[in-house]
Amino acid sequence: MNALLRGCTVLACLGLGLGLAWSMLELPPAPIQMPGLVASHMDQSGVDHPVTAVLLNFRGYDTLLEVAVLLLALLGMLAAGTTPLHASSFKEAPMLTALARALTPIAVLVAGYLLWAGAFKPGGAFQAAAVLAGAAVLLRIAGLLPSWTTPADGLRLALAAGLLVFLGVAASGLALGGLLAYPPEWAGTLILLIETSLTVSLALILAGLFLAGPDSRPPEEQS
């Protein structure tokens, strides 16, 4: 790319930034105020934390599609092809192994807490799953967890279970008048059901994005 084009790109980005910043300065207050609207519906949402209520109830459909997006990332990776990753590709490291062994139970505990806490304070399935997946990555690096190239039957079921449960709950809402409609008295239980199954599946998907990673070593080292 030549210097002139680079200069123009820099100028365009600069102009866009200045324009955006300027346009925000004198905005009048928004005509629709969502905080009040959300607060007035909290008692029907089944949870006590407004973000969780928006995420899993008011705008639960976004979350449903987003779980599919995450599963798709793994599918795309499998479609492009993976090659087996050897347990020995990471050097023996006694400290790392000990650390992984010590941290994993704590990670499981923290994930459980985050899942439970999501109902009334920041937390929830995604946070819990991220912690679990982090533990899996650590175990993998320490050589304590095997990698896989194509998920076996049971693993595929576990990877997709969260989405399947979510879809099932969403569809049963149709009986009540709308996709994803929960009866207020059942909303808390249903959200917990969705969040729990999502935690397992999302943790496996996130971990899978690392564990199923293609091997970057030259082929002669592969046996």
Binding site: D62, L65, E66, A68, V69, G76, A79, A80, G81
Partner: peptide, 30 residues
Amino acid sequence: FNLYVTLELLTLAAVGLVALGGKPSQVVAA
């Protein structure tokens, strides 16, 4: 905003399909 999520869903599915098979030229295009 929901349209943004559907756009991303569409993109990731389409990219996965382009990469299907994993030929180097396909991976580059994807």
